[in-house]
Design a protein around this nucleic acid. Structure first.
Lengths: 196, 196
DNA sequence: ATTATCTATAGATCTATAGATAATGC
DNA sequence: ATTATCTATAGATCTATAGATAATGC
């Protein structure tokens, strides 16, 4: 029993941390990172602000956990993207406004001076562009039908995904995010010789 | 003289306000809107925080002035966009990281709940998409070479501009924003029959 | 008179530290 | 013993109000 109890204790603690991170994701979606208070996060999991600091000793430590959660989020597909999965991902995202809002808010904040998530996003985009280029190369070879290289196309692909998210978050009624993204993929796949 | 003096007074007051707005743009670029303190803005124009409140009675009032400044910023070209001017605009933006950072940070924050700039951005994007669609129609008619309508292309065009800005702000060395944007315009202009 | 600024200050927050108390697990 | 939480609190901010004082312009 003792071994199992010890393990249960660890598991329970991990669950508590996960619960806190989930609450933090929500609060950041609502108020951004700078606007998110530890008190608001704590309240959501039924703790005092000081009780929360037992699990994450500083606000920044909590942010780190939030960003690791994000890495988890697309860890599985990120191993090796495929174009058809990408469209599905955008469709899936359209059903998860909360998480998209969290990371869109964080991305926006991250361009400000000394923001604690800045290095994370800078590194992340280097990786994501590389992944996307690799995916495009697997799909099309060294040149897309339109003549661009995968490396030059990758930033555009990433930009469209992010940019559409902002438009969609601000006005979901007016913006068909998955539809627009599929349009873009069609654009990429189109070939000068397709017509004849 | 009296009439002229009165006018000078008004002009001087207007100049002071403009100076404050410029300082606010800077501080927002550095810290976001929520993170920007009136004290920091005031200091930059050599006023106390309370002195600043003489010109803008609340923090939100100052934000309104900042957003109006933005409308000014692209008022001239916005009247009627042209595709070639659009590429130039992106090139121009690449020389103005400050202003781009200000509005990228604001856009990011604006998706959070109850943000005072949210309605502004929602409305703005409705307009910008309409302007872009109009421009695309003027350039290509009711269908682009790739078959998409101007209305379906407009959100993509806007998304690419915004998305590239984030990637570029985070990592200007790695991202050639104007070049990538020109690539995208090429993509739009390409015709299935071009090859033959 | 009006405009521009300042000092003083109320009232809200917010993060983080210190240290007590209760519960859990060897 | 260690882990989980709590109360108390220091120390920083921040916005906005009240009201004084100096300068400007009729």
């Amino acid at each position: 029993m003792s071994y199992g109890d010890a393990m249960n204790a660890r598991v329970r603690s991990e669950e508590r941390r996960a619960e806190i991170v989930r609450a933090a994701l929500e609060v950041i979606a609502e108020r951004g990172y700078r606007g998110a208070s530890l008190g608001a996060v704590a309240e959501r999991v039924g703790l005092t602000q000081q009780g929360l600091l037992h699990y994450f000793p500083t606000k920044d430590a909590l942010l780190v956990a939030v960003l690791q959660e994000r890495d988890q989020w697309d860890a599985v597909p990120n191993t090796r993207w495929r174009m058809d999965l990408l469209a599905s991902l955008v469709e899936y995202n359209a059903m998860r406004p909360g998480i998209i809002q969290t990371f869109s808010a964080l991305l926006g904040e991250s361009v400000t001076e000394g923001h604690p998530a800045r290095a994370y996003f800078t590194d992340r985009y280097v990786q994501v562009r590389a992944n996307m280029a690799e995916m495009l190369r697997a799909e099309y070879g060294d040149h897309l039908p339109n003549g661009l290289t995968p490396e030059r196309t990758a930033p555009l692909l990433v930009a469209v995904m992010d940019g559409l998210q902002y438009q969609w978050l601000l006005d979901p009624e007016s913006v068909d995010m998955p539809g627009a993204f599929r349009d873009f993929l069609t654009l990429l796949g189109e070939n000068r010789e397709d017509a004849g």
